[in-house]
Design a binder for these strands. Structure first.
Lengths: 221, 221
DNA sequence: CTCGATTTTTGAACGCATTCAACTTTCTCT
DNA sequence: AGAGAAAGTTGAATGCGTTCAAAAATCGAG
């Protein structure tokens, strides 16, 4: 498997040259020519390995998702309550992406689910689903009782909640992104509070309607 | 004021040539050269009147917001209950933008609030605030009692809710966007239900936390 | 070892949004 | 009416992402 290795090595060289440039000069002003140059290959080579400039960011994100997995495991293992678990998952992610925070902005622009690089696209399904699994587990192993009809949709809701937080974080210009951290602090409590509340009889009709709504939204999207 | 008029006329000619092309061939594949050509001016002229290709779409949106205002007035006038009012506002907007639905996708990509064309930018503040006013009025004149602490934030929440729906609608590939219409149908009821519910004593602590949270988010953003 | 097939690499196009310096028209003030 | 300023117009040039045809390197089978 020497070919595979060598090819892989080139790919990685391009990828890290790109990330380094993105970090140093920003996504927009880094050019593909420079990226290729930095990796010691011709411009076209970058396109042999990556479909587009954006796709390089996605590759970075995929790699990150892999590296994150064990860290997320630890986060779940180290926290007991549902609130602590969700908080831990979020903290790990934000901390991990901190050095490349702005870079994620290059991905967040793709709101069209048909676009390959959208967080909702078929191409990114695997990352997305693996990520949701962690929320699923955070819910499962916690002592909070989830009504059965909610169990199917709640991981997805939490994942969307997370995406919203990350989006806010990417463009948070406050010092050290303290607004995002305040937002996380406050919102996790509310979210968990609502989850607990969702079992109350008074809210049952609302809950039912929310569930069918979410099924409408997710259905065959 | 002949200059003003003539200049305005050229601007409008470029704008309508652009919209017509966008509708016929899609935003991406319509080129600035063609737009200018269609309006009978040189390429550079388009840039004299508009900062960018995207900015043309924003100009269209601004124009639309003006045209929409009386229609929204009528919508409010014709509906009594809060639910009917919100529903009416949404229906008017979706119906109005129907012919150019896909075009709005060109705006939705700008998630960075610092970008001039973002729905959250300083440049679009006026449109945004005028739009929120309608939700404010839908709330004011309705018989639903809103607790005072919510009054400041609720119009904004409803506006965000609307933006979410529109985003979903833009990329809704179901026939006649029936999924979006189902989503509107179901969600308006839930949203109004939650608003009504928000007055219940049981939910008071959650409500308070939500309000302070939203103040954190909006604060000086 | 050799020769065709496959993978990888190259750098020069290509198409497009955007910029710009020069040119022309229109306005303004006396 | 005329001169200087401002507004409007031009189309070629720039820079960038991306494509592509052709060259080079590598591989796999006989």
């Amino acid at each position: 498997m020497k070919t595979k290795t060598k090819s892989e090595e080139t790919r990685e060289r391009i990828l890290s040259a790109a990330i380094e440039l993105f970090r140093r000069r920003g996504f927009e002003s880094a050019t593909m020519r420079e990226i290729a140059g930095g990796a010691g290959v011709a411009t076209g080579a970058a396109y042999y390995y990556f479909d587009s400039k954006d796709a390089i960011v996605l590759a970075f994100y995929e790699h990150a998702a892999c590296e994150l997995e064990p860290l997320l495991e630890d986060a779940l293992a180290g926290a007991k309550s549902l609130e602590a678990r969700i908080r831990a998952l979020l903290e790990v992610k934000l901390k991990y992406f901190e050095p490349n925070r702005a870079l994620l902005g290059a991905l967040s622009g793709h709101t069209d689910p048909a676009h390959p690089l959208s967080p909702f696209s078929a191409q990114t399904r695997e990352i997305r689903e693996r990520d949701m699994k962690f929320f699923e587990r955070a819910l499962e192993d916690s002592r909070v009782r989830i009504s059965p009809d909610l169990q199917g949709v709640l991981p997805r809701i939490l994942w969307m909640y997370q995406m919203g937080l990350i989006l806010f974080w990417i463009y948070d210009r406050s010092a050290s992104q303290k607004r995002t951290h305040a937002l996380v602090d406050q919102s996790v409590g509310i979210v968990v509070g609502l989850i607990k509340l969702s079992g109350f009889p008074l809210l049952r009709p609302v809950r039912r309607r929310v569930v069918t709504l979410l099924e409408t939204v997710s259905g065959e999207a």
